[in-house]
Computed example of a mutant assay.
Amino acid sequence: MTQTKTERIFLIINKYAGHKNGAKAIEIVIPYLIKRGYLVEHTFTNHPGHATELAAKASVSGFDLVVAVGGDGTVNEVAQGLIGTSTPMGIIPMGSGNGLARELGISMDIRKSTMALIKGENLQLDVCKLNDQRFLCTSGIGFDAMIADKMSKAASRGFLKYVQLVIQESIFFKPLQVRMKIDGVVIEESVFLITFANASQFGNNAYIAPAASMTDGLIDVVVVRKFVKLWMPFFAVALFSKLIPKLPFVDCYKARRIELELANTPYYHFDGEPGRLKVPSKIELDEEKIWVRRAR
């Protein structure tokens, strides 16, 4: 889709993102856009789900671009309000993981990501869902879902806190017993984690599903079976080297529909956010898609 000049841009800002640096958008992004002739409005989020409400209203009001300024949680919320509309979503990444932004080639530098808002191009992406919860990048159960839950309750956020929790919790984590159908084929395993991937990475360039595509109409299912804990450092290296599929305890599938019949865990995550799992669950493509502004 050829990019045409955007006239009206609406920024939805999580001012607490990026160690409370989200408000920097006021100082950097808005003047940059106004100087180049764009009409810019903005507002701050103030409660869970607020970004979804704001995005939906901005789309109905005829804004040409709605921009999520924050981390993966803010991006997911903004997206919920734009899925199925013709209004594209832009991203100024201010979080700790920034999974979708990295997937779209958007710079972590606020000035460069601002340039991508007006010099980028629109791309239509698949949307996935676990039961009724839509997600754009990844969802899953197991170790990473437990970490997502603990991160949401931690006094501090950020990559270092994440690493601390991973090291601490990996010592005591017990594998899950899981039974599911992947396009009708029964899989029954003891697993460390299972990821349902639309995008290739969790964030921070941690590639759990290197072969995943957000436009192929398929969900990549990555099953990490239980493994000896001595393998943990190799797992970490593989995650950041796009080598996860080569590990001997990893199986990868591509599917249109997954039915989770058994999983002895209360946790799941969607785009890094924690959720409470209800089994049986269905993971499938949503009927609607979303337009996003990616870097050229």
Rank of each mutant, 00 (worst) to 15 (best):
T85Y: 07
T85W: 13
T85N: 12
T85M: 09
T85V: 12
S86D: 14
S86N: 12
S86L: 14
T87K: 10
T87P: 02
T87R: 03
P88L: 05
M89W: 10
M89S: 00
G90Q: 05
I91F: 01
I92H: 00
I92G: 00
I92T: 02
P93Y: 01
P93W: 05
P93A: 12
M94F: 11
M94W: 03
M94Y: 02
M94A: 13
G95N: 05
G95L: 12
G95H: 00
G95C: 03
S96C: 12
S96T: 13
G97R: 11
G97E: 02
G97S: 15
G97H: 00
N98F: 04
N98H: 04
L100A: 01
L100K: 08
L100T: 06
L100P: 08
L100Y: 11
R102N: 11
E103N: 13
L104H: 09
I106R: 02
I106Q: 06
I106A: 10
S107G: 10
M108H: 08
M108V: 05
M108A: 13
D109H: 07
D109C: 11
D109K: 11
D109T: 07
D109I: 11
I110R: 01
I110N: 02
R111K: 08
R111S: 11
R111C: 06
R111G: 00
K112I: 03
K112Y: 11
S113A: 14
S113N: 10
S113C: 15
T114W: 09
T114C: 09
T114E: 00
T114M: 12
T114F: 03
T114K: 06
T114Q: 05
A116Y: 09
A116S: 15
L117T: 08
L117S: 12
I118D: 14
I118C: 13
K119M: 14
K119N: 15
G120P: 13
G120W: 00
E121C: 11
E121N: 13
N122E: 15
N122V: 13
Q124R: 15
Q124E: 14
L125R: 08
L125A: 15
L125Q: 12
D126I: 08
D126E: 03
V127P: 14
V127M: 15
V127N: 04
C128G: 04
K129A: 02
K129Y: 09
K129H: 14
K129F: 08
L130N: 05
L130R: 07
L130Y: 03
N131G: 05
N131V: 06
N131Y: 07
D132L: 05
D132G: 02
Q133W: 13
Q133C: 10
R134N: 11
R134T: 08
R134E: 10
F135Q: 03
F135I: 11
F135A: 04
L136N: 03
L136M: 13
L136H: 12
C137K: 07
C137P: 07
C137F: 08
C137M: 14
T138N: 04
S139N: 06
S139F: 02
S139C: 11
S139T: 11
I141E: 07
I141H: 02
G142I: 00
G142A: 02
G142W: 09
G142E: 06
G142M: 10
F143L: 13
F143E: 04
D144L: 06
D144E: 10
D144F: 00
A145C: 07
M146Y: 08
I147D: 02
I147L: 14
A148F: 04
A148E: 07
A148K: 10
A148M: 05
A148S: 15
